[in-house]
């Protein structure tokens, strides 16, 4: 196996239970910084993201949580002038920030769900066919894979009779669950959530939150959220971002229980108690 990522053949040989694999990967971040031309958005990040746990990134707006999250699967590459320095290592040794890393296979292994649901403006079925075909699934396996993940996100019974209809016609909450299913379909080892509930109504938000919680143990989850109550409910670990000297950084991290109840950093403490931020 090379250091740039698992190949599909290896994945196919992995014995699967109940239709999907249960491999999760840990992430080890050290000395990470994200720069936009001359501006440093995030700096000095050291963080261990253990496999199979839910890590919540919290903190006020503009402190670099999203920049950090997007650097974990190199989506920062899309932004002209953006540069990431430091190390992000997957548990199999893959160095995310290395220029030779196969970005496409990295993004299959480290999936992402965005703030605004973004299904492709095509049929529900095509939303799965396009990425699955791209990553080497055989055409005849695609319907089963799609059904499995749509059941996992609780959408199958709602939409199984209109898979040929446009995904854009679904409600916001359904669209977001579709996007989660689409990311899960590729059998990722890590899944990143960038404020996945903030564009949804409270009920849909609750459904999505439960869904993310249910991924615990099977996948490594990293979630950026502004909803502290949500972070408290679902996170195993938490990291508090804060702007120090104009640069976003992590001022407190550890088990969620301790971070939320007994933060040692004064900025983190005042933010988490609602006094600042």
């Amino acid at each position: 196996m090379n250091s740039t990522g698992l190949s599909r053949e290896n994945d196919a040989e992995t014995p699967s239970s109940g239709g999907h694999r249960t491999v999760a990967a840990s992430l080890s971040v050290s000395g990470l910084s994200v720069h936009y031309r001359d501006f440093t958005a995030v700096g000095g990040i050291d963080l261990e993201i253990p496999e199979g746990e839910i890590t919540a990134l919290v903190g006020p707006s503009g402190c670099g949580k999203s920049s950090f999250l997007h650097s974990l699967n190199r989506l920062t590459d899309l932004i002209p002038g953006c540069r990431v320095a430091g190390s992000i290592r997957l548990s199999d040794g893959t160095e995310v920030t290395h220029p030779k890393t196969d970005v496409l296979s990295l993004r299959r292994r480290v999936g992402i769900v965005f703030q605004r649901p973004n299904p492709f403006p095509q049929s529900i079925r095509r939303n799965f066919e396009i990425p699955l075909k791209e990553h080497g699934w055989r055409k005849r396996d695609i319907p089963d894979r799609m059904e499995t993940v749509l059941r996992e996100v609780g959408l199958w019974n709602e939409i199984s009779d209109r898979l040929h209809k446009s995904a854009i016609a679904l409600s916001g909450g359904q669209q977001q669950r579709l996007c989660i299913a689409r990311a899960l379909a590729l059998e990722p080892e890590v899944i990143l959530f960038d404020e996945p509930c903030s564009a949804l109504d409270p009920i849909a938000s609750g459904v999505v939150e439960d869904l993310i919680h249910s991924l615990r143990g099977r996948l490594t989850v990293v979630i950026v959220t502004h909803n502290l109550a949500q972070a408290r409910r679902i996170a195993d670990r938490a990291a508090v971002f804060w702007v120090r000297d104009g640069i976003g950084t992590i001022v407190e991290h550890g088990p969620a229980e301790r971070v939320f109840t007994a933060p040692s950093n004064p900025d983190a403490a005042s933010y988490l108690s609602g006094a600042r931020g």
């Binding site: 989506l75 299959r108 973004n118 990425p131 689409r182 990311a183 590729l186």
Partner: peptide
């Protein structure tokens, strides 16, 4: 829609 491109990049297309 501006989010079409990140959506496809995020899926490794």
């Amino acid at each position: 829609p501006a989010d079409l491109r990140p959506a496809s990049a995020g899926l490794g297309l």
